[in-house]
Each structure stands twice: as C-alpha cells, then as structure tokens.
C-alpha cells in the first residue's frame, strides 16, 4: 500500500506536513517542558533525532523479522516499548563512554526520551503505514528533523518573550500555548504543498 509513496513525500510529511509536535500533537510534554531556553531545546532535539532514527530502524527489523514470522503481532506495543527503553540505555552507555562532552550536554534528556510519545509514535506509524525499510528509516529521520525545527523555533520565541508584560494569569503555559497556536497556524498551510 505504501510502496508507491516517494521518499521525498515521506520526508516532507515528516518535517512539515505532518509535523509531530504541532500537527499531530506527539511529544508535547517536552514541547512545553524543555523549550524555556534554546540550549536545552537543542540538546533534547539532538537526542530525539538520534533515538528516533535508531528506533525506527531496529523496530522495523524486530517487527518484520521476529514478530511477523512468529505471528506475534499483538505483542508489538510491548516489544516496541522494551526496544526503545533498551535502545535509550544503550545509547546512554555508548555516549557516556565515548563522547563524554556530548553526554554532559544531553544530560537528563536521554532517559526522558523513553517516555516521549513522539518516538513510540514514529514506530507505530511506520507499522500502521506499512512502510518498507528505507521508508521507515527516512520517516524516522525526517520526523526527528521536524521535531528539532519546531523545538528550536518555539524556544527561540519563548526566550525572546520572557520579559514581555503579559497578564498574570496568562504567564507561563497559557502564553506558551498561544505561541504554539501561531506556529501551528503557519504549519497548517503546508497541507497540499505536495499533492497527497
């Protein structure tokens, strides 16, 4: 079914048209939680791109070469969760051992990714859309890039508006949500950039 979708289409879908954060509402906890300054937003985005790509790759292999042959598709959710948790642990070990500077800058963001619904969302959407191996990987990378793009835009705007004098009850989250409204309005216009 999904074999005829071009890679460019999948890429544009992941980054803009079906942007994970503000069109599909996946990964909102980190969207409002870690966008108070650009540095942590960048760290989180880097970690998410990394884990999303790996998760899309590994879960495709597990689903198609372990679960499907054994007719255990109903275990997909549980196995994906375990795969992502294990992957995050593994990435944490490797990064801590080999690139300590990167580990320090990613810090607490790596363990947080386990419960980030964007990562599980990529994996589940890959299964749902019946993407092939290459398509799954491209979708994982592009969803990560789309996530990073919006996180950086959001944190940039929030940083610049920290000193704005808003009514006291609007301060904090309501304010962030109104900024998100504007960003989301811009992204809605990407519908139909490529004929679907």
């Amino acid at each position: 079914m999904a074999a005829d979708v071009s890679l460019l289409q999948i890429f544009m879908d992941g980054v803009f048209i079906k942007n994970f954060l503000i069109i599909q509402f996946l990964g909102l906890c980190s969207f409002v939680g870690v966008t108070k300054d650009t540095k942590s937003a960048a760290g989180m985005s880097g970690a998410v791109i990394f884990v999303m790509t790996l998760a899309a790759t590994v879960s495709f292999l597990i689903y198609n070469f372990v679960l499907v042959p054994l007719k255990l598709e109903f275990l997909d959710l549980i196995s994906f969760i375990v795969v992502i948790a294990a992957l995050v642990q593994l990435v944490e070990f490797v990064v801590r051992k080999n690139v300590p500077s990167l580990y320090r800058s990613l810090g607490i963001f790596l363990p947080l990714i386990t419960t980030n619904c964007a990562v599980l969302g990529v994996v589940l959407l890959n299964v749902l859309n019946e993407y092939s191996f290459i398509q799954s990987v491209v979708f994982g990378v592009s969803a990560g890039i789309g996530y990073a793009l919006v996180m950086l835009m959001m944190s940039g705007i929030r940083e610049r508006t920290t000193l704005v004098n808003v009514p006291s009850s609007m301060r904090g989250l309501p304010h962030a949500f109104l900024i998100a409204t504007m960003l989301s309005m811009a992204f809605v216009n990407y519908f139909g950039v490529i004929a679907l």
């Binding site: 069109i23 509402f25 962030a176 949500f177 109104l178 998100a180 504007m182 989301s184 309005m185 809605v188």
Partner: peptide, 11 residues
C-alpha cells in the same frame, strides 16, 4: 484543525 486545540487549551 490543530491551531484550534492550542488556542482552546491556552485560554
């Protein structure tokens, strides 16, 4: 559409 969701929860 998605902007409406952000607007509603913000308000």
């Amino acid at each position: 559409l998605s902007p409406g969701a952000f607007l509603t929860i913000g308000i």
